[in-house]
Design a protein around this nucleic acid. Structure first.
Lengths: 327, 327
DNA sequence: ATGAAAGCGCTAACAA
DNA sequence: TTGTTAGCGCTTTCAT
């Protein structure tokens, strides 16, 4: 930049003005500077600029697993909003590991990201209180973070789960199993609660619950294989699978067992309509969630204050066949 | 950091040494500094550190579309390698837009990323020659960048395409249509070339080619719907779909038309085995590609020199049913 | 083993 | 409209 200034015969600050499109530079001067920039192939250092300004020109996103379509859809929406604001996007996956999540959060904040969005893994998040003293907008997506009040946007997990199980009940099922994520995760709690509420409303009690957990598609496949191998009078006639990974595992197990067990999954997925038995799902929109979360963050950056906001996005039951199989 | 130094009664430099785990600090001094860090809740500013060091502690990845499972799988693998090296990951999608790609590349370089991986969109990439003068390792994934020689890692697109079409030919097909991506993209050229080679080797000529392009699943669905609506003596009896988006679109069109047209797709996808007609595909590994590309970048950072390297990963034909349907 | 001084490349604040 | 000065928070170099 010094070289550009010398070449153009102006001061450093004038070059800075031109680079940043500040007004109040005479057009003729600006042109001279632009020529010099061109000739020297000058590229400003955004790191230095960020340091001086105290703003990074980037936002951070911490998710569980970039390879999971739910999270990549979410990330894609966040990316788009960031881009509209001229920001770059730092992404990190923590794989439901609280320690790793914290590490990523800390590193992002140390890079002075302008805002931080995260899908909180299980565990206490009060550490965010001190980490974010700096006033960096913090938004929680998909789940509530425990131990701290943040701007949060989630799907109506409980309502969606209840709709799924109600649907199965309405089709005559009484032995309905749920396979869901780790209990430490907020979404799990909600989805399980929805399951129990629906059973309860149908007059079914604790003894009628069949609850399994699975963290991966493989674990889900194993769990469902076990369920389908139960003696007929204990075997569930219907499955409620608590997320997209679990649904995939369950479908494989169901296929391997040659079973026609009814199934409703949480999370829609591509080609669900073209499966051998088209899959009935509770749909939530990862993209919408990502978009809204990013917009909340930018509203905060824009000076919007007030207490942490909570947004709940509705879920939608998409009927395709697998949920309408009779017991 | 100044405050920490004052609190611990040492100089700035000593704090810096402790923060960076440099040796040659007496343990007792180090402990005093660590106490001060703790008490003041000091967090070093990575931006400042990066500026001074001239290295960002991050790498950049430019892909086409984060919401596409192929690219998110690739990104996930890159992320993992970056993490192993203590680096953060900047991601940007350019949606096959050359101008947007360049913008992202420039911004990443201005942030002094330590290495840059990119899936080159169509168009000339000689601009990279000047942009990367700084000696930042540049690796091209999934495609060759035209106009510049870069470390590049691709799948054997031509071989994979040829295997797909050979397979259809072996099952008696003679009117085989290909639906592939934009012609400006390197992978398209290779996959089309493989298609033509296979036809040629079977004694079929230009007149026997049925070639369509589609950039999205929707466009592919429309293109395939048209093909399937052709009079029977012109209608293709088999489809070779050139990427995962196109396969999805084609499957929908095929289903809507109630057709039993044979189909082999490029790119494997989840649940392909559980579709009504399980889908035969040519599988490539996005994860492997991402991992290897990142490792090449780190090898370069490690001082490895020599001319740009080319790595070609093999593809694998996965037989599931849709490719074995008779004409 | 520790510290002082200089400066990475830029922009904010103020001055001319 | 343009320039000067100071300094963002850290690390390098060199001295002690």
């Amino acid at each position: 930049m010094r070289d550009v200034a010398a070449t153009a015969g102006v001061s450093l600050k004038t070059v800075s003005r031109v680079v940043n499109d500040e007004p109040s530079v005479r057009e003729e001067t600006a042109q001279r500077v632009r020529d010099a920039i061109e000739r020297l192939a000058f590229a400003p250092n955004e790191l230095a600029s960020s340091l001086r300004r105290g703003r990074a020109g980037a936002i951070g996103l911490v998710i569980e697993d970039l390879a999971n379509p739910f999270y990549s859809g979410l990330a894609s929406a966040v990316e788009q909003v960031a881009d509209e604001h001229g920001h770059l996007l730092l992404i990190g996956s923590c794989g439901e590991d609280a320690a790793r999540e914290r590490e990523l959060v800390v590193r992002f904040l140390r890079r002075a990201v302008d805002a931080l969005l995260l899908v909180p893994a299980g565990g206490d998040h009060s550490y965010l209180l001190s980490e974010s003293g700096a006033g960096v907008p913090l938004v929680s997506l998909d789940r509530f973070a425990s131990g701290i009040e943040l701007d949060t946007i989630v799907s109506d997990n409980r309502g969606g789960a209840r709709a799924a199980v109600d649907h199965l009940l309405a089709h005559g099922h009484r032995r309905i199993a749920v396979v869901a994520d780790r209990p430490s995760v907020w979404t799990w709690q909600e989805r399980i609660a929805g399951y129990r509420e629906a059973l309860g409303a149908a007059g079914l009690g604790e003894g009628d619950r069949i609850e399994r957990t699975a963290a991966t598609a493989d674990e889900a496949q194993a769990a469902v294989a076990e369920l389908l191998a139960l003696p007929q009078d204990e075997r569930p006639t219907a499955l409620f699978t608590g997320n997209n990974r679990i649904t995939v595992g369950a479908l494989h197990a169901r296929h391997a067992a040659g079973a026609q067990t009814a199934l409703v999954g949480f999370d829609d997925f591509e080609l669900a309509d073209l499966l051998r038995t088209p899959v009935t799902v509770v749909r939530q929109s990862a993209a919408e969630m990502g978009r809204v979360a990013a917009e909340i963050a930018y509203a905060r950056l824009d000076g919007e204050d007030g207490p942490p906001s909570h947004r709940v996005l509705p879920c939608e039951l998409v009927i395709r066949g697998s949920g309408e199989i009779a017991p």
